[in-house]
């Protein structure tokens, strides 16, 4: 058994060295929280049932819930009498089991009723269905995942949540504009595939798989996806780029690359959530000062998984 209960050999030495450089004095707290299972959380579906009715129903049934400050329909589940995925309310689509920090990227994007929204890497559909609800089931969310099996699970969750304003597609995200056109969306969410260090709170696999080489490989994919996401956006449209990891090469470096393609970084608003500014320098490389408007979410700050979120606007010219 390793430090804080990690299995022997985890975290790997190169990971530890890199994250110590990245997080400095915050590294130990990061590691301590990463070793702990997060408190589960749910997002209630206001489109199927008045949330107050559902909440009083769940509380009557023995669930102890605590509201999340950054999303009014999000709740931590302190305790309860059954598995969250095996209740009538879950099976009827009245709530979705969703990690607390993962509700933040849709909040940052703030999709509105009637808009055309693209969720470029959508499976399994937590953020897709959240955005569909934020839009009052008006307008359209195109939810894309290149893997047919993942697109099927996405479609099953869209069905269960009743999201009538969602269209599921299964294209390679790097060529999405060939199929859907350029400049057609009001808003785009790219919750990019990543090294998923934040998700290590639930499962050690990301730490076992981690290597600097894989971070760099994923970073190249992220840049391709982000450039295509930006192209799909209308001039003046907004985009959220997020990951559940903290490596600068998967986050700030990707955003820095978009700045030369007509993207501007805007402030992220997540009321009630503790965030830290994005990096403007890493390992001797200077990044655009506007990257300080991006946010890093550390597990120890809100007792969530780690996240990175950037809000961008495509310039009008």
């Amino acid at each position: 058994m390793g430090v804080y209960g990690f299995p022997a050999g985890l975290p790997k030495r190169p990971f530890e060295e890199r994250y110590r450089r990245l997080l400095g004095p915050d590294y130990e707290a990061f590691l301590r929280y990463t070793a702990r299972m997060p408190v589960p959380s749910i997002r209630v579906n206001p489109m199927k049932l008045d949330p107050d009715i559902l909440l009083s129903r769940l509380r009557r049934g023995g669930w102890i819930l605590e509201g999340l400050p950054w999303y009014r329909h999000g709740f931590r589940v302190i305790s309860g009498p059954a598995k969250l995925g095996n209740t009538p309310e879950h099976q009827l689509g009245l709530y979705y089991v969703q990690e607390a920090a993962s509700m933040a990227p849709p909040v940052a994007l703030d999709p509105r009723p009637g808009e055309r929204v693209l969720d470029l890497a959508a499976a399994p559909g937590s953020k897709t269905t959240q955005m569909a609800e934020m839009m009052g089931w008006r307008g359209v969310v195109v939810a894309n995942d290149p893997s047919p099996s993942r697109a099927n699970s996405l479609a099953a969750n869209v069905q269960r949540m009743g999201s009538i304003n969602v269209v599921v597609t299964s294209y390679d995200g790097r060529t999405i504009t060939r199929h859907l056109g350029e400049g057609v969306f009001d808003a785009v969410l790219l919750d990019a595939p990543c090294s998923a260090v934040g998700a290590a709170r639930r499962d050690w696999t990301p730490l076992r798989r981690w290597s600097l080489r894989s971070v760099r490989r994923i970073s190249r994919l992220q840049v391709s996806l982000a450039l295509e996401a930006l192209r799909s956006l209308r001039p003046g449209g907004r985009m959220v780029y997020s990951t559940c990891t903290l490596d600068p090469e998967e986050n700030e470096f990707v955003i820095h690359r978009l700045l030369s393609e007509g993207a501007e970084v805007e402030e992220v608003s997540l009321p009630g959530m503790v965030t830290r500014p994005g990096l403007t320098r890493w390992e001797g490389r200077e990044l655009d000062p506007s990257l300080a408007r991006t946010v890093r979410i550390y597990p120890q700050d809100n007792d969530t998984e780690a996240f990175f979120i950037a809000l961008l606007r495509r310039s009008r010219s």
């Binding site: 089931w137 008006r138 307008g139 359209v140 969310v141 195109v142 009538i164 304003n165 599921v168 299964s170």
Partner: peptide, 19 residues
């Protein structure tokens, strides 16, 4: 299936709206 008017207007999807 039931779909929002805007979703139903798209022809690119493999699954549109809700059964």
């Amino acid at each position: 299936r039931v779909a929002s008017e805007e979703a139903a207007a798209l022809t690119a999807g493999r699954v549109i709206g809700v059964y």
